[in-house]
Design a protein around this nucleic acid. Structure first.
Lengths: 202, 202, 202, 202
DNA sequence: TATGAATGAGTTTTCATTCAT
DNA sequence: CATGAATGAAAACTCATTCAT
């Protein structure tokens, strides 16, 4: 009788360790040895569960997407109106406090830089961004409709909002000291509200 | 007779080569060898002019700041009103077309990720962000005043705008394919205009 | 099933190889490559077992101390009187023949020069010298007492004797050709004997 | 009319700088660049005056020999009896105070280690040691004769004394903290005196 | 003589990956 | 599954030496 496989458990542990090492030490220092140490595993075992380091990075991207998605799901669970859902999304991405995950944010920033020139990373990164764009666009359209506004501007507005979120992540991870405290969520909401308020009616 | 120094020239060449390699190949591949090859110099000579790779990175940050500053200076040179100056700034950072420098943008994104955990890089990055915040705040305040609006919201608005710019850089470098074309400058201007339009009077 | 560790064995092999390379080629030529070749291992493996070259040097100093200590222990094992023990010590350090280890001596000389300016090496070297001083002082005091002589001069005498031993090592390693044959042990013993003979009684 | 050659002056400056760098930083750090910096000259000029680094080392050995010789000459100038000359020699080599040159001593120790395996250095080192042996032997013989003692033991005694001096240099340079203060000259003189006192008459 | 840029071989060290146990 | 030794290629950096100026 074979031992029960613990592969999924191990893969999770490894990815969780990679997330932490990436956030705490940066990409250069995120060696297999360092990840193994963080996970209290051995380098050999890491490679038993992941053929290459690139494969680990792919898994980490999926994990980070799930982490961000989870926060939104939690906040959106009690939202009913389009406006509430939109607010839930923005707060999930930008609000300080409960559910905030600075390590995931830092890891995401580092992956974003890797996406600049690693084609495989870029593909997954683009896919994640694409989903964000799609989701946010839907939320915006629903909100616009509920306000009786035309939805034409939703794609561009969604694009700028996604950019803002990426930028907030970047600055939170690399320039926190020079940024105002808790500036992001409230201001973004105000920007969107006023933009929509002055948008043409259908 | 002593030999004439060409250090400044060489340092410029090396930093220019580093910018290109960073933008084209990412941080991992931006080895001294690769930079030397790009600059058509030998690795030994690189180290003759820069003691360490970190020193090169510092010089590159200064160079990138200068590049961005130059584009703004060019666009602002014909601006007279506060509104024109603000538009010049946003266009300098976000508009496609003349003066655009995608390689500098990509290099900046990669440096932003390095700033997450390299303290020396972070210090320079924070300084650069801090200057952007200060400049943008002044531009916003002048514009708000000229419109008879209170200026209280300028710091948070500036912070979100800087974040947006960083995010636009990130997405332009790592997810261009999934982004709408030329979405950024126009939309950002509209967001600011409407935000200010609905802002309280002094 | 876990693989059995051979770290201790490997570390010993590496240090033994380092000793030989140091003695045969000098410090400059004692590169990781050369040591690896001598040990029939790869450079990478050397660094798997020793994080840095400095760490190897530390281990070598400990090994050399043990080698010298062993020769003394062997000769002293049959000594019963203070005089015999003192003779055993001097012969252990200076006599030609059985138990002599010219490679260890040469390695020690080279380490002594490194101790001039490498603080970590110096600390261990000073510690080793300090132990030699202490041991020799005790042996001298016991001998003086057994002869009914005052022991006041023991510290200075021990210091000069330790210096002489270091010097004999140096000259045996770097100027053997111009030195008389087998001059050291016998002459040193005579010097000490006559010094003590003419020392004041208690 | 050609400029007056300053080659000798420059060579002296370079060797003086090398001595200091060697004493202050050790052999590893005594690079041409470091020596050039110490001498306030350029690396290229160093190689104009010395074809290779080895040649510099040779010149330094000669310089050190001269430095040591000079101190002896100064102390011996007022000595008339064989005993006084012997004392002058021992004090020249071992006494603290006036004319002491710890940097030269440290440099000599480092060269002694290089002599272990660099044949050219070894040749000069052996030559220097050989001269010391010869000189000391003559001084001892003259002293012995004046005391009416047989001179048979002079070679071995001289050899041990030279070893002691080398060892005192070594310990002064690498283990000063653990050695008694000013132990060497006085104790060595006592050792020799008593040895000779108990030596057979002619 | 003197400068200092340039070279290229060499150094220590790192690290993803493999593999015997 | 798990260990950890082992590899080999590549990294940053050093440095004696050369040479155009």
């Amino acid at each position: 009788m074979s031992r029960k496989s613990n592969t999924e458990q191990r893969r999770s542990e490894i990815i969780a360790a990679m997330l932490i090492v990436l956030a705490e030490q940066g990409y250069e220092r995120a060696t297999i040895q360092a990840i193994a140490k963080q996970a209290q595993l051995t380098p050999g075992l890491i490679h038993y569960h992941f053929k290459t380091k690139a494969e680990m990075l792919m898994a980490l991207i999926a994990e980070l997407s799930a982490i961000f998605q989870t926060r939104y799901a939690a906040l959106a669970s009690t939202a009913t109106t389009p406006n509430e859902k939109l607010l839930a999304y923005i707060n999930a991405r930008l609000a300080k406090g409960k559910g905030e995950n600075p390590e995931a944010v830092a890891a995401w920033v580092i992956i974003g830089a890797e996406a600049v020139k690693q084609p495989e990373v870029r593909a997954l990164y683009e896919n994640a961004i694409s989903q964000e764009l799609g989701l946010l666009q839907e939320l915006l359209k629903a909100h616009l409709k509920s306000k009786g506004k035309r939805i034409k501007s939703a794609p561009h507005l969604a694009a700028v909002m996604v950019a803002t979120m990426e930028g907030v992540f970047q600055l939170a991870s690399a320039a926190e000291a020079v940024m105002p405290k808790a500036y992001a969520a409230k201001t973004v909401i105000a920007l969107i509200d006023r933009f929509i308020e002055l948008e043409d009616h259908i």
